[in-house]
Design a protein around this nucleic acid. Structure first.
Length: 804
DNA sequence: CGAGGCACGTGT
DNA sequence: CACGTGCCTCGC
């Protein structure tokens, strides 16, 4: 056992395989699969993952691996298998699959340095020597910026300098210095007595260390307790009476919070009925996927908690996935409240270091439950007992970069590895999931009643075209405005929801219809009030706001697309007495801002909560009795076959925020297309009818769940080259695929140009196409050669969610 | 991805 | 024929 087979951190097609390295003597037997190692690769050093250990190698000459980066494997065997599966499923590089499973802090940090050979300091050219005054190494970048590279290169050749490559992990473990008694308590007592009379500070500190239950305190803690300063502590340490030790600690993002311990609630009859088959599966150690289909407020979370309880009592672990956007403090509280310190939380609000720490808690088996966003599905547990995906229909479970995986598929794969159940929970399941439940692939569990005897809110749909005809040009319909006033009087709370996805704010000339466009992408520029500029969301292009129309010189420039700020202003005009909290990217970008705003609203410091998607989920306050949706149809017109489904889901979610407790709730949905079935049916909260109707539409369009999709996007600076390549690919596919499959395109992408690159796409619809992965791989391999020679980029998304 | 090699071009 | 610029190939 002395050869390690290693996947290197070089994401290209040619290096997407294992490379063999011999393991030098001191590491033999200590290098294990799943460890990160540093290996020489070509002239430099890179990070790699040990995939396996073997005796022999095909390779002619082996290099030694430099050293391991970990003491124990960071990926267990099951995760290594999962990486193979991910690679196959999403057609990504093995290295990308491995990296996505680890916190970003564990990615490699590369540094290239120039080291001085000390014996040669004297013979260096003057300019080069200037760089090495008082030091023996200079970063490559520094040398480059000084414009000294050609000179230094000569010196390197002459052997006066050396190039050195270093590989480090980005993340740092946080440590703290703690002080301990260096001698016995008795000795300390003696010391106190022998100290001069005026040294009362030192005496107090020593007294503290004598009486302290367990020593091992930070300098600040000791100083505060004894009323001394850190200098005193240091003096005592220098005398050899105290000793200091550097200890590793976890960053604790929840340090300031106390979690109220909760115990299992009595289940309703419905919940009882739903949980029974889950518990049975856990007991029998079988894999099964459940769809927990429960209306908003029906108590799905309690079913999750009690299912986890069962797993927990068996000594097994649980993963709970939650959409990033609803990983709110309220949600975290519920899990921490039940399972206390046995819960790790992974979400984007944490710093890289905090995420790393939470991850290490999991790896060291210090926690049993992980609550996190998409990538938490890769939590390094080894004895998984259950996986839960809340809000199963959320599109954020699909990763939009490589590896383009869907957490739902990953969850099912992992659950099969451990013979444990998956619970998919939603009030508005994705069509794919519900169809599978109907077919019996998933087991359907239903919760049809609200807890707290809350009734579903009554919903009224307002036709904004009528309002306009009636002379109301404001963004509030008469009905919504009256209800707003009413709540204000009663002291009840309102949530106003602004759906901005699709349309963002843009500016348009009212005389000639000119809309500011990005010069590099075929998309309108978005108006950013904060910086008073126009920005492109795709390439980052930024320009000033035109005062007059560049086309016709008109001064009638109008700002379109109601942003939250604009609504806020209008509210201030119409209802000056109302206290409004606005939640959008601007007000929540600071760490913890999201939490503070919600808390403040929950405590009744405001009458109206105004926001974008981020307030659609999870929000659960008893005093909310009115929900207003200002423009329900903005995303209905996106070029996406899921737009009706997304609209229905969003409206249903938002409506579910009202009347969750004693007070009955009302919902007002404003729209320009009240006749659309997704809006009409969201109004009556009728998922089943929506499902039927939408399934018909999908069947007619040959879309999922009737067909699978794969999307190929081709991009290049030259439009002709793109079209040419896209046509070739389409022809190739048509020739290779079975006649039952449909190949659409090539057609320009919905955003035909991004960053000066034209984009064409080709969509494959298929029911059964076992050869497709290998066909797609061929296309990718072929494109690799083209990429070098022509600069073509081809990306493939299996089961895409974004058609852009 | 990033280095070193090599096939060209320019300038002498 | 020395040296610079850009493309191609290779990496255990």
């Amino acid at each position: 056992m002395k050869i390690a087979s290693v996947t290197v951190d070089v994401p290209t097609m040619q290096t997407d395989r294992a490379f063999d390295y011999s393991i030098p003597e001191p590491w033999q037997g200590k290098i294990l699969p799943g460890m990160r190692v540093i290996v020489p690769f070509g002239p430099r050093k890179v990070q790699g993952f040990v995939m396996g250990i073997k005796e022999t190698s095909e390779a002619k000459k082996l290099k030694n691996l430099v050293q391991p980066m970990d003491l124990t494997p960071v990926l267990n065997e099951d995760l290594l298998h999962m990486a193979d599966w991910l690679t196959e499923q999403t057609l990504c590089f093995k290295i990308s699959a491995l990296q996505v499973m680890l916190p970003a802090a564990m990615k490699a940090k590369y540094e290239k340095k120039i080291i001085l050979n000390p014996a040669k300091r004297e013979v260096l050219a003057e300019e080069a020597a200037a760089l090495f005054i008082n030091k023996e190494e200079v970063s490559w970048k520094e040398a480059e910026e000084a414009g000294l590279l050609p000179l230094l290169q000569k010196e390197i050749k002459a052997g006066h300098l050396d190039v050195f490559y270093s590989v480090k992990s980005k993340g740092r473990k946080k440590t703290v210095q703690k002080f301990y008694r260096a001698v016995s308590k008795e000795k300390l007592q003696e010391e106190i007595e022998s100290l001069p009379a005026n040294a009362d500070k030192q005496k107090a500190v020593l007294q503290f260390f004598i009486s302290a239950e367990n020593d091992g305190v930070t300098s600040k803690e000791a100083a505060d307790a004894a009323g001394a300063s850190s200098a005193t502590i240091k003096a005592l340490a220098d005398k050899g009476l105290l000793m200091k030790k550097q200890e590793e600690i976890y960053r604790n993002p929840f340090a300031h919070k106390n979690f109220k311990k909760t115990s299992p609630l009595p289940l309703t009859e419905e919940q009882e009925k739903a949980i029974t088959p889950i518990l049975k599966t856990i007991e029998e150690k079988k894999h099964e996927t459940f769809l927990l289909y429960g209306v908003t407020g029906s108590g799905k979370t309690e079913v999750y908690l009690q299912s986890i309880q069962e797993v927990y009592e068996q000594g097994k672990e649980a993963i709970v996935l939650v959409p990033e956007i609803s990983l709110t403090p309220q949600m975290v509280d519920r899990f921490k409240g039940r399972f206390g310190n046995d819960v790790a939380v992974l979400h984007s609000g944490l710093s890289a270091g905090e995420k790393y720490d939470e991850w290490r808690k999991i790896q060291r088996k210090e926690v049993k439950v992980v609550v996190g966003a998409r990538s938490a599905i890769f939590a390094p547990f080894e004895n998984l007992g259950i996986i839960i995906i809340d809000e199963e229909h959320e599109t954020s479970y699909k990763q939009e970069e490589n590896p383009r995986y869907h957490a739902r598929d990953a969850a099912i794969y992992r659950a099969k590895q451990y013979n444990c159940p998956v619970i998919l929970g939603s009030a508005t399941p994705s069509l794919e999931t519900f169809a599978r439940a109907q077919k019996g692939v998933f087991k359907l569990l239903t919760l049809s009643k609200r807890m707290n005897s809350g009734r579903l809110p009554s919903v009224s749909i307002v036709d904004m075209r009528e309002e306009l005809r009636g002379g109301n040009r404001s963004m509030f319909s008469e009905e919504l405005f009256e209800k707003l006033q009413d709540r204000l009087q009663k002291g009840e709370q309102t949530v106003l929801f602004l759906n901005r996805r699709g349309h963002s704010s843009f500016i348009m000339c009212r005389d000639c219809g000119y809309v500011a466009q990005c010069p590099q992408c075929d998309i309108s520029l978005t108006y950013h009030r904060f910086s008073n500029s126009m920005k492109c969301h795709y390439c980052g292009y930024e320009t000033g706001v035109p005062q007059t129309c560049p086309e016709c010189d008109s001064e009638h420039i109008r700002y379109f697309g109601t942003g939250t700020q604009k609504v806020e202003e209008e509210l201030a005009k119409l209802l000056p007495e109302a206290r409004v909290i606005r939640m959008d990217v601007d007000t929540t970008s600071r760490k913890g801002a999201h939490e503070r705003l919600l808390e403040s609203f929950g405590e009744g410091h405001a009458d109206i909560l105004l926001g974008t998607q981020m307030i659609a989920k999870g929000l659960d306050f008893p005093n909310i009795t009115l929900v207003g949706v200002l423009s329900a149809d903005t995303m209905l017109h996106l070029p996406d076959f899921r737009s009706a489904e997304k609209t229905f889901q969003l409206l249903t979610q938002v409506s579910g925020r009202a009347g969750r407790h004693k007070l009955p709730g009302e919902v007002v949905i404003q729209t320009y297309t009240p006749e659309h079935y997704s809006i009409e049916l969201a109004g009556t909260q009728n998922y089943d009818t929506f499902y039927q109707k939408e399934m018909m539409m999908r069947k007619m369009g040959s879309y999922p769940p009737f067909y699978y999709l794969s999307l190929i996007t081709i991009s290049h600076e030259d439009l002709l080259k793109v079209v040419g390549a896209a046509e070739k690919i389409t022809k190739f596919l048509q020739a290779k695929l079975s006649p039952q499959s449909i190949v659409l395109g090539p057609a320009a992408s919905p955003i035909p140009r991004i960053n000066n690159r034209y984009r064409y796409q080709c969509l494959i619809k298929y029911k059964r196409e076992p050869e497709l992965p290998s066909i797609l791989k061929t296309i990718l391999e072929h494109s690799q050669q083209q990429k070098a020679s022509e600069g073509l980029t081809i990306s493939i998304d299996v089961n895409p969610y974004m058609m852009m």
